[in-house]
Amino acid sequence: MEEKRVVLETRGLSRYFGGLKAVDGIDLRIHEGDLHSIIGPNGAGKTTLFNLLCGVLSPTRGQILLHGQDITGLPPYRLAHLGVGRSFQITNIFPTLSVFENVRLAAQALGRDNFRLFTPVTRLPHYVEKAYAALAETELLELAHVPAQQLSHGDKRRLELAILLAQDLDIWLLDEPTAGLASELVPGFMALVDRMRKAGNKTVVLVEHNMNIVMSLSDRISVMHQGKLLAEGSPQEIARDEAVQAAYLGTMYMDAEQ
């Protein structure tokens, strides 16, 4: 446990919007195979941190290292090729394409056939098989040929997972994967995430409001508050941490109840 490799690291990572310090000097070390949760009240800068990690935003200052290699400022599509993938807080899929096509496109993205202009996709069975495997894993096989926009919300969230799964990535950044999910579906969904990541030895960075999930699944937890890292540790340590409790755990529960 103590000698796990660091796969993703940030050094003094900051992003300012004008006068607002959305993310302010974050030093984060994420270890291989961990499920590392980032929690904090609304506006703590978690989403901005995510946008920095996956390359949507470039940092005002600071560095991001992947396997010790500087990846600061690389565009999102490059990061995908380096093994970092992301799911979104608001469902983000290809609405008019079929569920199968959504996943097949994800599988194809990291291959070398993107510029084969005139070969039918059916002649590249590799991606097709990968897509079906991912769909089977996420129990979406029956819905494979339905346009993605017709899925129920829960199925769409699982489709997001299938998209990640089809890509053989090392690191998943999950931004509130259970957002908008009916509460009775949440445990099953997170169990699926947990099973999938353990099966594939994925490193997962998770932003989540549901404290039960965070406490039960996380290997480590980082707490953000007003753009800064307030505390970091195992779930037990965080739960005991008085500073965390005093500073804002209360407000967070209020947020969660809204």
Binding site: F17, G18, G19, L20, A22, N42, G43, G45, T47, T48
Partner: peptide
Amino acid sequence: MTTTFDSSPALRTGA
């Protein structure tokens, strides 16, 4: 609201 960007007054007046 604090996480939404681009409309912070300082940035707007500067630009």
